[in-house]
Design a protein around this nucleic acid. Structure first.
Lengths: 297, 297
DNA sequence: TCACCTCTGAAAGATATTTTCGGTTCGGTG
DNA sequence: CACCGAACCGAAAATATCTTTCAGAGGTGA
């Protein structure tokens, strides 16, 4: 069977074996070095490789030619490619659990991987019907209140900041008393959003309930679609729940998940209200420009 | 010591984006050519690439240096590796731009994808040396102050919440005056962290500077490693920069990126202080339990 | 407008690669 | 055993490529 010449990086080791018999002793040494450690050889110059194999530059070049490259330069490039491929090939095996003695680089890799996983899960599990309904309500709301405590409180603020930027009226509440006080002001046409991972945070449920009873449209963003908070929610947006480990509290992944949901809400609303949202975004950008010192360039 | 060089070629495009703002026009042309067609550029010599981009050899070399390689030769090698990887790898190819009339389901998919991308870029671009140093400083700090405004303010609070949970003393400041007032209290052994995407937010730079001048260990989390804020930072943690679109403000991806960095810091510190961190985490978990109503089942 | 500073490319300088060329080895042959 | 020729090899010249230097172009702020 004739193999195609398509990729120069195919299987270099095989090519070396095939051609080895027709090589002279010196060339074999070079070829073997190249085949056994592509990455290492890619880092060497002709002279370096010649010294390593105890031969001369000329021999190295001859070997490169025999292997099908115009010269050493090109062999070296191919080698670099090969090395990179090998490298990436053996990457995906990571145990996602973070151990106490993991080196810092592993921590970064694992965290990034887990958060990516969380995002994928969330996107997959999100009910677009519910999301769409929530967006519609938000886009038309007279005002919007968002409740969240602790880590979820930050997500609530994030949503609020975004909505304000496109000209909507929104408030985030983390003080339970104030939240309830404000909630009873809401009425039909307003929107109340509760963010709670467990779905059982009383301090967040109470204001949502108050808003619900006043006729406001209520939305719950929670990881537990069967939890108490959903009783008072017209629309439930489910965030993903991943097992937590000792070094990686659930708060971390729920936050990632909640933020994705919040971003979706925001973009959805921005789409619906594009006429007013676009200029508002531009205006807020403009207004902040002067708060930044003239930059390095 | 045969250490392989700097970064695993992973995301050159991300690096280009991060560094682009600090590049001159000519260098940007080169960087863009390299990012958009790694394979093609790997086939060119300095002179060739210079001609292709309408610049000079000197500019090409400068660009290579800026991207973190000792010279063009090494950039070229990395490019070859990247090309090979792409070749063997996948073709994700969803148009990531979100349009005004995208259906809500697409919005979810695209946002999730983009945030995943941001995470990957961030992880790839994070200097683990700097991260480790920051972790060490944090773990040993008498107290830690975190500065952030706007969206970054939420990230600052997130970090603070986490550090408090493992028994460290941390405060987040978003009021510039109070921030400076507190910053001057810091001294050697304390840590100050500034979070700003642009790196030029005066309100955040000032307190960091105050802390820096008082001898505290200072850390900057920014998307612009050459920005003013880094002048006063002992350790710089770079977040990824992705192009922003009208419906997807930069704040969204910078937040994702910043949060990953913050999570890494937290987990790193938790590892180093495991003896005290573990019981603290457990205790805070316990203390919050009663705030959750008994759950549905 | 002028002084200053950064950016830029041409060309010199330094390295790396390729080619040339003569010496060496080895097997065969008179 | 001496000699010859062919293949093999590496030193060094020749060439290509990469890097550095330097002075002018172009822009910016006073």
């Amino acid at each position: 069977m004739k193999e195609s010449f398509g990729s120069p990086v195919g299987s270099l080791a095989a090519k070396v074996r095939t051609l080895a018999p027709s090589m002279t002793r010196s060339m074999q040494r070079v070829a073997e070095a190249v085949a056994s450690d592509p990455a290492g050889c890619a880092a060497l110059t002709v002279t370096g490789l010649a010294e390593l194999t105890g031969t001369s530059e000329a021999t190295v070049v001859r070997t490169a030619r025999l292997l099908g490259y115009p010269g050493y330069r090109d062999l070296r490039l191919a080698l670099a490619g090969l090395a990179a491929q090998q490298q990436s090939g053996r990457a995906p095996a990571i145990t996602t659990d973070i151990a106490v003695d993991d080196p810092i680089a592993d921590v970064v890799t694992k965290l990034a991987y887990e958060e990516q996983q969380t995002l994928a899960d969330t996107a997959a599990g999100l009910d677009t019907g519910q999301l769409g309904a929530a967006v519609t309500a938000l886009a038309a709301a007279r005002r919007t209140d968002v409740y969240g405590i602790g880590a979820s409180g930050l997500v609530a603020q994030d949503l609020t900041q975004k909505l304000l930027r496109i000209g909507l009226i929104a408030h985030a509440h983390s003080d339970p008393h104030l939240a309830v006080t404000n909630a009873v002001q809401l009425r039909s046409g307003d929107v109340a959003i509760a963010i709670t991972h467990s779905g059982s945070t009383g301090d967040v449920i109470e204001p949502l309930r108050a808003a619900f009873e006043r006729g406001a449209t209520t939305v719950a963003i929670t990881g537990r679609p069967d939890s108490p908070v959903t009783q008072y929610a017209d629309h439930v947006l489910t965030t993903s729940t991943s097992r937590e480990t000792e070094l990686r509290p659930a708060a971390m992944s729920s936050r990632t998940s909640q933020l994705l949901v919040v971003d979706c809400l925001f973009v959805g609303v921005a789409q619906r209200t594009y006429e007013t949202a676009a200029p508002s975004l531009a205006a807020s950008y403009e207004a902040l420009a002067h708060r930044h010192r003239s930059n390095s360039r």
